[in-house]
Design a binder for these strands. Structure first.
Lengths: 108, 108
DNA sequence: GTTCTTTATCGTAATATTGCAATATACAAA
DNA sequence: TTTGTATATTGCAATATTACGATAAAGAAC
């Protein structure tokens, strides 16, 4: 009825799905790319990089933060954001391991 | 307004986001895991593996198929599904490359 | 103090997702 | 042909997401 039945699935399945869901929007992919391409964390420059209203960007940042993909710290007047390596690597490694079984299959 | 502004982002950003979105539900993660753990493609056994109604599982399978993550072929009375390696590897490699820049950063 | 700048939150509208019962479709088996 | 089995589609209700204007909050600059 609109709400996912998370209780029927494993913790890992829910965690991975939550991270994937947070990455499931082009604006949030663009934010992650922007943060990763920078040399360090980005302070107060994300809104201007995206073709969306400030309120919308703030909402996308909140979703990424909720999923654990980014961290933010207050730096004077601005907020500094950066990618949380641990969470991103957890996500990548899950798929590396899971897809590792794909090797020797003949299918469909 | 509810609809993503996909036209403002690159094709790759939209592609990756679409795949991530399809993976953004624990039931669909469970389906991918089930297909990957099997020795070959799975014919007519997915509904019984999930704690969801048949109509709901069919819908999740359709979303995975739309995202290109799985392929299905008719095998008599049943449908055989398997993971599309190419699409999954495209997804994984994108994050491997994108996150490769994370190495030497001090942040937040 | 006031004003400017930056980010967050609230309220709201449009749209999308999730889930399932009911029904449809398609082939298999008897 | 009739019955059974497996998957897809339709229709609907509940909930979630996306987007933005307006407003709030907090520090910076003056």
């Amino acid at each position: 009825m609109g709400a996912s039945k998370t209780e029927y699935f494993s913790q890992q399945q829910n965690q991975i799905a939550a991270i994937a869901k947070a990455l499931g929007h082009p604006a949030r992919i663009a934010i992650i790319e922007y943060l990763l391409h920078a040399d360090s964390c980005i302070c107060g420059d994300i809104v201007n990089e995206l073709p969306l209203a400030q309120a919308t960007v703030s909402q996308h940042l909140r979703e990424l933060k909720l999923a654990g993909l980014i961290k933010g710290s207050i730096e004077g007047n601005a907020i500094c954001y950066c990618v949380d390596e641990e969470v991103l690597h957890y996500f990548i490694q899950y798929f590396q391991q899971t897809a590792g079984m794909l090797q020797a299959k003949q299918c469909c």
